[in-house]
């Protein structure tokens, strides 16, 4: 009995060698593709549970692969990128990627992202939760109530809307533009300052140490992410 099936699309043999060994040891079934073309074919043929996709492929760029995949499947996609590719990361996320990791990354980080993606997959196939819990935070989406260690926290309308939007995509990186257009409206795409200020207010109300947030995380140059504790 093997675990979930992961398709890794990357062209560097050493990374593939390491990932295959590590992921197999964690009981994942691993398939490997070294080009975008091959990756798209394998994704269609084998229907993996998760795709790990490198942005720099020899035949086409990862963003294009992402866009092609999203034409027919909702399989979670985790992007691997190198530094100085913030614009590319944002583009990939906008094209439907679920998450990204910057090389070099710690393997715990990758495993955590894989778990989040799998949970997200299970959730999207089942019923939508109306109550989301992360550590001491409990968000009741239907009743518009947020509690911290059982005590109700007063949030303004926008604060709640922002938290609810992040929480309903738990674990996923949401780009600034994505959040702004969904919470404030499409005409606010450039007003990142709203997001900064309201995130900071949310952290003050919900995080034990707002300076070292554990649930409402910044993704520098890209966006924000709400995480639940594993």
């Amino acid at each position: 009995m093997t675990g979930p099936h992961i398709l890794v699309i990357d062209d560097e043999p050493q990374i593939l060698r390491a990932l295959r060994t590590i992921l197999s040891a964690h009981k994942y079934r691993v398939t490997i593709a070294q080009t975008g073309e091959e990756g798209l074919a394998l994704a269609a043929a084998e229907h993996p549970d998760i795709i790990i996709l490198d942005l720099g492929l020899p035949d086409m760029d990862g963003i294009t692969v992402c866009a092609h995949l999203r034409e027919w499947t909702e399989i979670p996609i985790i992007i691997l990128s190198v530094r100085n590719q913030e614009q590319d990361k944002v583009k990939a996320l906008d094209k439907g990627a679920d998450d990204y990791l910057v090389k070099p990354f710690g393997i715990e980080e990758l495993l955590a992202r894989i778990r989040v993606a799998l949970r997200h997959l299970a959730k999207s196939q089942g019923d939508h939760e109306t109550v989301i819990t992360s550590g001491p935070i409990e968000i009741d989406l239907a009743r518009h109530i947020v509690t911290l260690d059982g005590a109700e926290v007063k949030l303004t309308a926008t604060e709640f809307k922002l938290l609810a939007y992040l929480a309903s995509h738990t674990g996923r990186v949401l780009t600034h533009q994505n959040i702004l257009s969904n919470v404030w409206g499409p005409e606010y795409l450039e007003n990142v300052e709203y997001l900064r200020v309201f995130m900071s207010q949310l952290r003050k109300k919900l995080e034990t140490d707002p300076k070292q947030p554990r649930y409402l995380l910044s993704e520098p140059g890209v966006g924000y992410r709400f995480v639940t504790e594993d």
Binding site: E193, R196, S200
Partner: peptide, 11 residues
């Protein structure tokens, strides 16, 4: 972008 300095520093 308009940023909060302490967020950058703490990060």
């Amino acid at each position: 972008q308009w940023n909060i300095l302490s967020e950058i520093v703490e990060g």
